[in-house]
Design a protein around this nucleic acid. Structure first.
Length: 814
RNA sequence: GCCGGGGUGGCGAAACUGGAGAUACGCGCCUGACUUAAAAUCAGGUGUCCCCAUCGGGGGCGUAAGGGUUCGAGUCCCUUCCCCGGCACCA
């Protein structure tokens, strides 16, 4: 028998699969008429090509691979594509670090990753590969942008952005770490700049409601729910008589309206300066606004609350009292209306502020029973509380009081029920070079003019100096910038900003379905056939980013009639982090382990098995190579045992054999592995189950069932270790394991005639006896009592109760 | 502070709806076989305390800590402690 040499057999089988186009899948001829029951869209989050793959990726894609093989062999047509999220900061930063053009660096990296992926033997349909930076792809990203723009869902407005004063550039949120620039460490400032936004807030409720239609991890849905942050409450209008102004506020606690003893405006509130104008507070307010404007976000959040009196008063619409209006930066312009009614008796922040500036505190809610709490303890708006000091509403339970007060306000035109969200529109323009150009022209006469569809793509020009410098690098490229206005033909200038890379990845799973289409981003019938993705696998770090954006995109495309579904991913699974030195393995942290060396030493099959054997796939794991020896041993043993059987045991066709324990074990393993992968979505225990079966097999090749058990082992391990499985399958005289039906267990064999009855006395095991499976409860109890060891223990005592668990145990209580 | 996830042998971890023997499978370690030797391979052992004993056999205690429900709890409930991740002035 020859030795197990993965370096020989692995490339050999990879070539066989490639030649047979084993994992390529064609679209149905007539997708609209093709039944969808046996289709399966398997997708894993596509990699950023900012460096070679590390063990985190290996876990991600090996998981996808096991599911792919399992589904294929269960009769599904599996679409399993791959691509590269090749635009954006990770790739550009790599280029800046290493010198060279982002395109060259990116394309080198893609080539490297592709080689790694092939080396690991993943079953990928490479005909469908796409990369975000290719004009054939981003042409359609631009096309989709235009559709959003036409629908009023992409727009420009001035908004605060993260500004690094040192690098003179706007930073993406993900480049800001603890309020500091990721690269230089400078404190990031907020700056108002004109930016492009997607109106994702128009879909807040749809994004929340449709959670009910998808099978995602509870925690991911919880994260999205918190992020969208829907709060129900009311808008209440406060009157400023002196200036003939109305100041609306949002509150979740209209029941506490009588306790609103002052108001607070955010310093950025457009009326802040106007309120103070002409009062003796004016200079002080001006000074406060000036100071607040240069405060860092970090300082704003951590300092003690401060503020300044505006010099004006507003009318509390409920109590009719004049209350002072203050300006303070603990109120945020981005949420609600940028102004609040302050109820110090029932809100911690208002309370702290009132204490500091000696403002009045009026308690208006108290518990139904028990003592009123001390000052500074805050109610929770429950039915166990009632309103006090609230005029005609006093005495009402808090929730009802809230409803009645809002009703009362409505009748007087001073308020209405309102909903507020913490979700904000998605700012997607970047002052960077390496991204998808935004197909817009600015014209002195026509304003913002979209580039006509037929002129797409707006190509990203090749430039030498692509470094960020405060203004977009493309803005200094005069030759590219100047263009005639598509509308009037006059002088125009191109949009020099590029798109956030999350735009590229919000629709890539659609392009995979129809990747070579040059008339449209995709044909609707084709995406309607494949989508939604049946199983998506990727990191939970994308819960509020990519996973939310993609849902938004699909909803918009559905509303535009471009797709026939409203959710992109029917089911999501998050693999755990592979950690090294305690923190998540990632290129930006620099703590990565490449699979290459391990694959050289032990082979791809060993790497694949090991990463999944380390622990439950959805749990974080600390990377270590201790233990990989065990997998290598297992593979060598498998090799030896199967080869021995191939040479000695009965040839194919003689599988019918006595129901020996080995045969039964083989069938049990079939059940276990299928149930773990298919139903439980557990990937480490199937490996253990196959190891057990191999352990049974090794000394027992003379068992008549050895051949069946051996074939079962090879067949079951194939999704994990496809190369060795294919080789051994061939040596067993069979072929093309990758397309063999998944083995089915013989139910008749699994049902035994007898079982071992466990006999407990007072919950402690005292004996076990072999009994026929057909015995009824009463007979089982008789058998239990008949046991000599139980007799000794019972010793004439009265059996008070007997619990019978069918096919398991009898517990006698004395 | 809030929201998630977790705590089981020397280590990674099993135990799937409360139902035997907790710790499968693997790593490590110990003993032995083969070998001049090593590697590889194979066999056996490996929670803890105690008792009887010649091979061997029997028993108590053990799943972060404490309490509870139950005939029966790693699994359910309550309290506490510890670790990891995310969010954080959202009115």
């Amino acid at each position: 028998m020859d030795r197990y040499e993965p370096q020989q057999i692995e490339p050999k089988w990879q070539q066989v699969w490639e030649d047979a186009r084993a994992f390529y899948v064609a679209n149905p001829e007539d997708p609209a008429q093709t039944p969808r029951e046996r289709k399966f869209y398997m997708l894993e989050m596509l990699p950023y090509p900012s460096g070679p793959l590390h063990m985190g990726h290996v876990l991600n894609y090996t998981l996808g691979d096991v599911i792919t093989h399992y589904r294929r062999r269960n009769g599904y047509t599996v679409l399993r594509p791959m691509g590269f999220d090749s635009f954006g900061l990770p790739a550009e930063n790599a280029a800046i670090r290493e010198g060279g053009h982002p395109r060259e660096i990116t394309e080198q990296r893609i080539a490297t990753i592709r080689t790694q992926m092939r080396r690991l033997g993943w079953a990928i349909d490479w005909d469908r590969e796409v990369s975000a930076h290719e004009p054939t792809y981003y042409r359609w990203t631009q096309w989709l942008f235009l559709k959003f723009y036409e629908a009023g869902l992409a727009y420009r407005k001035e908004a605060p952005v993260n500004w690094c004063p040192n690098d003179q550039t706007v930073l993406a949120n993900e480049q800001v770490i603890d309020g500091r620039c990721e690269r230089c460490g400078a404190q990031v400032e907020a700056r108002n700049l004109e930016q492009w936004f997607f109106r994702i807030t128009a879909y807040s409720d749809a994004l929340l409601d449709d959670h009910a239609t998808i099978d995602w991890p509870e925690r991911t849905i919880a994260i999205q729910r918190n992020w969208i942050g829907r709060s129900e409450g009311a808008e209440v209008v406060f009157r400023v008589e002196a200036l003939d102004l109305d100041l609306p506020v949002f509150t979740t606690r209209p029941d506490t309206l009588f306790g609103a003893t002052f108001m607070v405006l955010a310093p950025e509130h457009p009326l802040a300066a106007r309120l103070a104008a002409g009062t003796e507070q004016e200079p002080e307010v001006r000074e406060y606004l000036r100071r607040a404007a240069v405060r860092s976000t970090e300082e704003r959040e951590t300092k003690e609350k401060d503020g300044v009196f505006s010099g004006r008063y507003a009318l509390n619409p409920a109590s009719g009292e004049e209350i002072p209006i203050w300006i303070a930066d603990y109120v945020l312009m981005e949420y609600g209306t940028g102004a609040i009614m302050a109820v110090p008796a029932h809100d911690e922040r208002d309370f702290a502020f009132a204490k500091r500036y000696g403002l009045p505190v009026a308690r208006v809610v108290e518990p139904l029973e028990g003592e009123a709490e001390e000052e500074g303890a805050f109610s929770a708006h429950t039915a166990n509380e009632r309103l006090v000091n609230s005029g005609e509403f006093s005495g009402l339970p808090a929730p009802e009081g809230a409803r009645r007060i809002v009703e009362w306000l409505g009748e007087r035109g001073r308020g209405r029920p309102a909903v507020s969200y913490r979700l904000r529109d998605w700012g997607f323009s970047r002052q960077r070079y390496w991204g998808c150009p935004i197909p817009i022209v600015y014209c002195g006469r026509c304003g913002i003019v979209p580039v006509p569809e037929e002129e797409l793509p707006v190509l990203l020009p090749e430039v030498d100096d692509y470094r960020p410098k405060g203004i977009p690098p493309l803005a200094s490229n005069e030759a590219w910038l100047r263009v005639s206005c598509p509308s009037c033909g006059g002088e125009g200038r191109r949009e020099a900003e590029t798109m956030d890379t999350f735009v590229d990845s919000s629709w890539y799973f659609l392009r995979y379905c129809d990747p070579h289409n040059d008339r449209a981003p995709f044909e609707r019938a084709i995406v309607d056939y494949w989508l939604p993705v049946d199983q998506y696998v990727g990191g939970i770090d994308h819960a509020t980013g990519h996973l939310l954006y993609s849902r938004f995109f699909v909803k918009v495309l559905n509303d535009l009639g471009l797709v026939g579904f409203r959710e992109p991913f029917a089911r999501v699974f998050h693999q755990g982090w592979v950690r090294l030195g305690g923190s998540k393995m990632s290129k930006s942290r620099g703590n990565v382990t490449s699979p290459d060396e391990l694959a050289r030493m032990y082979g791809a099959d060993a790497v694949r098995l090991y990463i999944l054997f380390m622990g439950p796939a959805d749990q974080d794991m600390e990377w270590t190579e201790e233990g990989v020896e065990g997998i290598a041993r297992f593979l060598r043993r498998l090799w030896r045992v199967v080869n021995a059987v191939a040479e000695d045991a009965a040839p194919p066709g003689s599988e019918d054999s006595e129901p020996t324990p080995l045969l039964r074990k083989a069938h049990e393993t079939i059940v276990k592995v299928g149930d773990d992968i298919g139903r439980r979505f557990v990937f480490n225990t199937p490996i253990a189950a196959v190891m057990e079966l191999v352990n049974e097999l090794s000394p027992a090749t003379d068992d008549p069932a050895a051949r069946f058990a051996t074939e079962t082992v090879v067949s079951l391990i194939q999704p994990y270790a496809p190369h060795i499985a294919e080789e051994l399958w061939q040596r067993l005289g069979r072929e093309r394991l990758w397309e063999q039906a998944w083995p089915a267990a013989d139910q008749a064999l699994l049902e035994l005639d007898t079982f071992e009855l466990v006999i407990q006395v007072n919950g402690k095991v005292r004996d076990r006896v072999e009994v026929p499976a057909t015995l009824q409860e009463a007979e089982l109890i008789e058998r239990a009592k008949a046991s000599p060891r139980v007799q000794a223990l019972l010793d004439g005592k009265q059996v008070r109760q007997a619990i019978v668990v069918p096919r398991r145990l009898v517990n006698l209580v004395v």
